[in-house]
Amino acid sequence: MPTVPLHLAPKAPIVPPSNPLPQLLETPTGLAILEIQGTINLPSPDLSTHTTPIGRLVFPDYSENSSSNGTAWMKRVHLYVGQHQRLTGEVKKLPNPVAVIRKRENYQTDGEELEIMEIVYWKVVFSSRPEPVGT
């Protein structure tokens, strides 16, 4: 099947719960991109939950109220992984915006269709090695 349509928007609108991210990183659907140099080792799966908690994402220099702090807050983002590790990263503008694409749920099932869920312009990137932190 050599031709597949790629729709520009999701069939059903995606309504996110309130977005905890800084406003710059907010998108209409709430989707964001986070990049880590390396991998996260996950613990053995806990079958009772749908998610595996990793840690916390902190924007230490970001303040919701002051719109005057410009872009300085973007230079420092922390990702605490588990109890003892911390990654330091930053918020970066993507050189080219990225479309997040998924298969469109199609109940008529005549051929595959794709749709753009969201276009993302920024990413949070962690490119340094993790440092140990005390608890």
């Binding site: 996950l42 998610t51 595996t52 990793i54 840690g55 994402l57 902190v58 694409i101």
Partner: peptide, 20 residues
């Protein structure tokens, strides 16, 4: 402080497409 970060066990099949 900060936003709790977790990984979904049911991962979706998504693709990222760079847009010129």
């Amino acid at each position: 402080s900060g936003i709790p970060f977790e990984i979904c066990k049911d991962q979706q099949q998504l693709r990222l497409l760079e847009l010129p």
